[in-house]
């Protein structure tokens, strides 16, 4: 039996606000899909159906959109999704080593989810943190930079304990005193 998903009054109020920012309702599709994914954890077919009905847009169109963008999860994922960047700068700085380390640690391959549903692991394209390679993103949220096996161990322990990583600011090194001379 498929789960049923619905938006409550508060959700509809948010969606109404989103709609007010655009001249055409179709433009609200991406924001509303994001909102739905935050609420339900995925944009599975049932959620797509809900979004289509709520916005009164063709469901096929929603399907096409969801499957085009990689951040939307058409299938439910693990509680924590580890998106390890392996692209270019991260590749040359050991992104694949970090990916293998996590694969070994969690006992799954990239693209899989641990049997307990705690972790999904993905090898992803450039996340725009090239200067802080290798890095990963946790469930479309915080970036974890300058990965090392130790840092990964800590991260996974934290996540298991329900502690999400906090935002890691990377101020420009230019302002550091020692950078002025080299």
């Amino acid at each position: 039996m498929a789960e049923s998903f619905s938006f409550d009054g508060k959700d509809l109020e948010v969606i109404r606000k989103i709609l007010s920012r655009y001249p055409h309702k179709e433009a609200a599709i991406l924001p509303v899909l994001w909102y739905a994914q935050d609420k339900f954890g995925h944009t599975s077919p049932d959620v797509q159906h809900l979004v289509a009905r709520t916005l009164d847009v063709p469901e096929a169109h929603i399907h096409g959109v969801v499957s085009f963008y990689t951040q939307f999860y058409e299938k439910p994922m693990g509680r924590h999704v580890l998106d390890v960047c392996t692209c270019l700068s991260c590749q040359v700085c050991g992104g694949y080593d970090m990916l293998s380390y996590i694969e070994d640690k969690l006992g799954i391959r990239a693209g899989e989810t641990t049997p307990d549903g705690q972790f999904s692991l993905q090898s992803v394209e450039c996340l725009g943190a090239c200067g802080y390679a290798p890095m990963l993103q946790v469930t479309n949220k915080q970036y974890v930079n300058h990965l090392t096996p130790e840092k990964i161990d800590r991260l996974i322990d934290d996540l298991k304990a329900g502690i999400e990583p906090s935002f890691e600011s990377m101020p420009p090194k230019q302002h550091e005193k020692d950078n002025r001379l080299s």
Binding site: H49, A52, A60, I62, H63, G64, S67, F68, T70
Partner: peptide
């Protein structure tokens, strides 16, 4: 649905 060379036409789920 999908992207790039995995593209093909489909209905909603």
């Amino acid at each position: 649905v999908s992207r790039g060379d995995k593209n093909y036409p489909l209905t909603a789920h």
